[in-house]
Amino acid sequence: MAEAPKKLPLDAIWRARTSKFGDFAGYDMPLQFEGLIPEHNWTRTHAGLFDVSHMGPSFFALPKGHGLEGEEAHRKVASLIERLVPADIQGLKPGQVRYTMITNAEGGVLDDLMIARPAEPGAAGDLYIVVNAGCKHQDWALIEAATQGEANLVRADDRCLLALQGPGAHIAAAAVIDPALADMSFMNVKRYDAFGRLTITRSGYTGEDGYEILVRAENAKDLAEALLAHAEVKPIGLGARDSLRLEAGLCLYGHDLDPTTSPIEADLAWTIQKRRREAADFPGADRILREYTNGAARKRVGIRPNDRAPAREGVEIFKDGKKIGIVTSGGFSPILNAPISMGYVDAQYAERGLGLDLMIRGQARPATIVPLPFVPHNYHRPK
């Protein structure tokens, strides 16, 4: 018998606002409140509050009494996690967040994740790591196996992770949590003594400005209700989270990324910093660096169907009658009022403006390769 999906700590708050729930990564998640399109548009113009407590937040720290201080402590804990990822984690500045991937020996992606270096006193040997919901148990096992007890992994998925996203996010966060949040930089992390103890990154999965806020379960209700009481904020479901990330050209693990897909194919070469490329000491380095230098055989691209028929995952891509690729994500863009897709095509066809055909229900429909993202990002980068 299949195991019943887990309930979010804030399940009662969401059930008071919607009956539209669905199982995602083993959790019973709210899918919609007012409807996908109004929720999507509200997030693009105001601020949406998403419950993403199904994700895998954790803390990775050197054991107590390790005897290291400052940069030496950080380099030690960062070197341990670098056994799994190709990003330069040792090079993180205090308070900085970096997007990266766990790669396998063949250069494929086992998961994509965020790794942050807290800046507070006493946090020199700590990292804050958030992995994907469907991969978290696998990822945590990999981290523990690769680091062999040299550091401690502390799961935090018993807490609530709330994503406040949209151009009004900084207004609500400053009013409800701390005025200093308005000036926090994109891809930074900070801890706040509010609503218990909060760990906040200025990041998200929508292409908009915003924050991801880790809060203990016992304080989550007060925080969520305070944010929802703000005029800028409405609750947003999982449906709009997917349409927003697709407009932003962001990958969804298990669809646009998988164990056979390399970061170079996925157009994520920018996530591998110079020090790691020169060291070539991460899993799958042979393939990844070969593709970095010579190019990959295929490439992730944006696709705009020329008509109104959406091309969803699994749709085959053709050029002059020859199959050249496959769609990995697709749907409707409320902002563009048109269907959009992402997929992989043979590298020789990954040309902006190229016309191609999408085989939808046995019929070839015209489409065009376009640059990503479909909708420009709106991240907060201080001038």
Results as ranks from 00 to 15, higher is better:
128 Y>W: 13
190 K>I: 07
40 H>A: 13
340 I>P: 03
71 E>A: 15
220 A>E: 02
280 A>Y: 06
213 I>F: 10
183 D>L: 07
319 K>Y: 15
243 S>K: 12
165 Q>V: 05
139 D>H: 05
210 G>W: 09
325 G>Y: 03
371 P>C: 04
166 G>F: 01
137 H>I: 12
19 S>M: 12
272 I>E: 03
203 S>I: 07
121 P>G: 03
161 L>N: 00
93 K>W: 14
333 S>T: 12
53 S>F: 02
252 L>T: 12
287 R>S: 13
29 M>I: 03
194 A>L: 07
178 D>F: 01
160 C>S: 11
238 L>K: 01
66 H>E: 07
380 H>S: 11
255 H>Y: 13
360 I>A: 14
346 D>R: 14
237 G>H: 11
175 A>I: 08
360 I>Y: 05
343 G>M: 01
14 W>N: 05
64 K>L: 12
314 G>C: 08
235 P>Q: 10
53 S>C: 03
264 I>H: 05
224 A>F: 12
101 M>Y: 12
146 A>Q: 08
42 W>N: 11
96 Q>L: 03
153 L>R: 03
259 P>S: 03
135 C>R: 14
214 L>D: 12
76 K>N: 05
303 I>T: 06
292 Y>K: 13
333 S>K: 13
29 M>D: 02
79 S>M: 05
83 R>S: 10
34 E>V: 08
